[in-house]
Design a protein around this nucleic acid. Structure first.
Lengths: 244, 244
DNA sequence: CGCAAGATTGAAGTACGTCAATTCCAGTGG
DNA sequence: CCACTGGAATTGACGTACTTCAATCTTGCG
């Protein structure tokens, strides 16, 4: 089975067999986390880079009023903080949502690999640029779109992101989030998130099963959410393969 | 006069005289922009990296409904898209707010400089990490703080950022923004932004002059805004000098 | 079976948006 | 020096999207 990171990077550029082997070799020390465990906490001095192999995790902060805003989701193939070891200490935490398998990569290992392959190096930097682009798009969404479109936009994004790493089937994907976590992401109340999800269901745009999101009409959902996939920068190389 | 970029990077690490000279040498081709001109547009293929030398610029997008969300402010010393040349095309635009002097740096030039000095290379990567941290904090602010605290939080941030590059005096800094631009940043209406500014003035937290923001009581403002400066990662080396 | 966590729904309150009028002010021309 | 002008700031009245509180219902799981 192909590493999700390889699948993701191939959306940006072609990788040699050697590059792929180097990525597979990342997976030296692997740790298993349960649901809702912290991978790394605010204030910690980061010493490893984490690669999600299985499950969903999230970046979050804790606010004085008890709020727990979520600033990013990390799914298989996502590298948390590729160069965060430069910083003195973490300014946010990363915690699992579902059970997760995580590869712990030492900084030295990573820089060695990047020094060896310029292609891989470029591909990894590309992935950090995409992470930043996602952050910008979320900022737009949270600040400037009404609640129903916020949710719809998020579903579109996760549909494309899971598809890019081979984790979607039949127009659906596994989404191990509670409505409260979704609400913390979109800057709204769980109650309101629930109502907006119902609205999307009533409009025949989505269906929800147990921890599963099914997109009944992606073009219409994208249109409704005013979703422009450009910011994911997936247009390259191997993309068409995913649609077969 | 010291380059604002040098001042900024020195908050992270000490720089050799040689490193400083290399940064000064950035400023080969300089372009002057008027207020509200685009430096680079969504859809463009980026070929240069831009370094702001003077004035304020902003990252923004245009939404179908005519909204114009602002996702970041770029002030002197800020490097726009240090490695954006990796991307096929811009997913957002960068435009000036005030008149700006901007250094246009070719990608080749930048990579050559970074290859020569590991220290400088690390320092520049650090600055991109800070940019990302700011984006995360804005996401928290816009999604999870009430309007009055959003404005207050923003003022605290810009106070510290301008101070870090030597652009604040007497507890104040030049802020060439209309209230509409401020509102587009914080995800609210210009009318509401106005009222929240008034509230902060009434509470003796700030004063406003012509295009100038004066912070009357920074500790109290930070407390009010629930502002934790950690995310700016300014705690290093030369910081204390700024307070004298 | 029974519990606890999460999802769903209703009713009432509020922060913020909308619309529109008025005032302020920097720049320009007389 | 002053009148004129257009963009921005300010204020008021009113509407609404979202929150809050709280009850009920569903579902996974020991």
């Amino acid at each position: 089975m192909l590493s999700p990171l390889v699948r993701k990077l191939e959306h940006f550029t072609a990788l040699s067999e050697e590059d792929k082997r180097a990525i597979q070799a990342f997976t030296g020390e692997i740790r298993q986390f349960g649901p809702r465990e912290d991978i790394i906490c605010e204030g910690d001095k980061p010493d490893h880079v984490h690669l999600i192999l299985e499950g969903w995790a999230a970046r979050y902060k804790l606010l004085p009023d008890g709020d727990r805003p979520i600033m990013a989701y990390l799914i298989p193939g996502d590298l948390c903080d590729i160069n965060v070891t430069l910083l003195d200490k973490m300014d946010h935490s990363i915690g699992t949502l579902s059970p997760c398998r995580v590869a712990m990569i030492s900084r030295d290992r990573l820089t060695a690999i990047m020094a060896e392959s310029p292609t891989l190096s470029r591909a990894l930097w590309w992935s950090t640029l995409v992470d930043e682009a996602i952050l910008r798009e979320w900022l737009v969404t949270v600040g400037h779109r009404p609640a129903n479109k916020r949710i719809a936009h998020f579903i579109c994004e996760m549909m494309l992101r899971t598809r890019a790493v081979g984790l979607s089937q039949d127009n659906g994907f596994s989404m191990p989030l509670t409505q409260e976590e979704l609400a913390d992401t979109m800057g709204m109340t769980p109650v309101h998130a629930n109502r907006m999800l119902k609205e999307l269901r009533d409009q025949q745009l989505i269906e929800m099963g147990r921890r599963r999101m099914i997109v009944k009409d992606l073009p219409r959902l994208m249109d409704f959410a005013d979703f422009n996939p450009n910011y994911l920068h997936q247009q390259a190389a191997g993309l068409q393969r995913e649609y077969t």
